[in-house]
């Protein structure tokens, strides 16, 4: 059963330790991702969503990062894995795309080279054949005049094309799991939609599981099967995309929806969430959202609320949510 899962995280904790302070970026996250499933992790900056994503690939800065709990990715235990084991996993089974393709691509190597080297690394194939595969990949991600672009350097491409090239690199070894770290945030609005549509098509064609990190609810609704809302390093709500979007359970998720512009809200006043996210250097007991929550009670501040599940497939970390009988 669990062999079919792409990702299984249990009580995952990630801490950044430095001489001055310890930052608790991820604090006990549980989730699973099945084959071909698209999970969106939603949250504001600093909520720990990118760190969670990087933890899956073991890409948080070495030396300063402490990862605890259970994390199993494509059958490989990531927490105790050596760098050599991880490098087998990375690029082949799991691939990642980033927010800013300009800085995420090596500026002094051609696009073709950056794709081909990944293929050569993971498959016994000559560089020349890898370059031919790279051409196919550029066509797959719909880069016009792909042959010419193989020879191009990142700075010679537009933002949208760069992100497509980034996706081509990620797909070069047909990974089972694609991790996307805000891949549309840095792009123009029109390009955003194109990239999003491309990602959805590729996900379906190649049958990949995807974890998509974003702070943009609209983007999440466009691509996700399930949504997880993250706050202060915890999943505060998780559920199918429709349910969460229509009727969020957690006050924070409700606030997020209230702060977003969408057609259903025409004529209504936008609401904002007062206050600021907590300091992750010192985690207070209780619900992290309590200081900003309108429905706060004494019990919220005393203990961290358990995950409650009002119906199968949905859960939230709030005492106002009633557990299904």
């Amino acid at each position: 059963m669990s062999e079919d899962l792409l990702v299984r995280a249990k009580n995952l904790n990630v801490k950044f330790v430095s001489r001055d302070a310890t930052v608790h970026a991820v604090n006990g996250v549980d989730f699973q991702l099945a084959q071909r499933e698209v999970l969106c992790i939603l949250g504001e900056s600093g909520s720990g969503k990118s760190v969670t994503l990087r933890a899956i690939m073991g890409l948080n800065p070495r030396g300063k990062t402490v990862v605890e709990g259970e994390l199993n990715v494509c059958g490989q235990d990531v927490v105790g894995a050596s760098e050599a084991q991880m490098s087998q996993l990375r690029g082949r089974q799991v691939a990642m795309i980033f927010q800013e393709p300009m800085t995420a691509l090596d500026p002094v190597f051609t696009i073709g080279r950056q794709i081909a080297e990944t293929i050569v690394r993971h498959e016994s194939i000559s560089y020349k054949d890898a370059l031919a595969r790279a051409l196919d990949l550029l066509e797959l991600v719909q880069i016009p005049s792909a042959k010419r672009r193989l020879e191009a350097y990142p700075h010679e491409l537009s933002g949208g094309l760069r992100q497509r090239a980034m996706i081509a690199i990620a797909l070069s070894c047909k990974p089972k799991l694609l991790l996307a770290d805000e891949p549309t945030t840095a792009l123009d609005a029109t390009v955003q939609i194109q990239i999003l549509l491309l990602l959805r098509r590729l996900q379906q064609e190649l049958g990949m599981g995807v974890i998509f990190v974003t702070h943009d609810l609209g983007v999440a609704g466009e691509i996700a099967d399930r949504i997880a809302v993250m706050y202060a390093g915890r999943f505060v709500e998780e559920g199918p995309v429709r349910d969460v979007m229509r009727a969020p359970l957690h006050p924070y998720a409700q606030g997020l929806l209230g702060a977003t512009v969408h057609a259903g809200l025409r004529g209504k006043r936008l609401t904002t969430i007062p206050g600021a996210p907590p300091d992750l250097r010192a985690i207070a007991p209780g619900c992290s959202f309590a200081p900003r929550c309108a429905m706060v009670e004494a019990a919220c501040r005393a203990d961290l609320p358990n995950l409650r599940s009002p119906e199968p497939g949905r859960s939230a970390r709030c005492i106002h949510v009633n557990e299904a009988a």
């Binding site: 990087r54 690939m57 890409l59 991880m86 490098s87 087998q88 996993l89 990375r90 690029g91 082949r92 691939a95 990642m96 980033f98 800013e100 800085t103 995420a104 691509l105 090596d106 500026p107 080297e117 990944t118 690394r121 993971h122 980034m166 690199i169």
Partner: peptide
């Protein structure tokens, strides 16, 4: 960032 990408490719 690109070094993270390179590591992410398992090089």
């Amino acid at each position: 960032d690109f070094v993270t990408t390179l590591r992410g490719k398992g090089l």
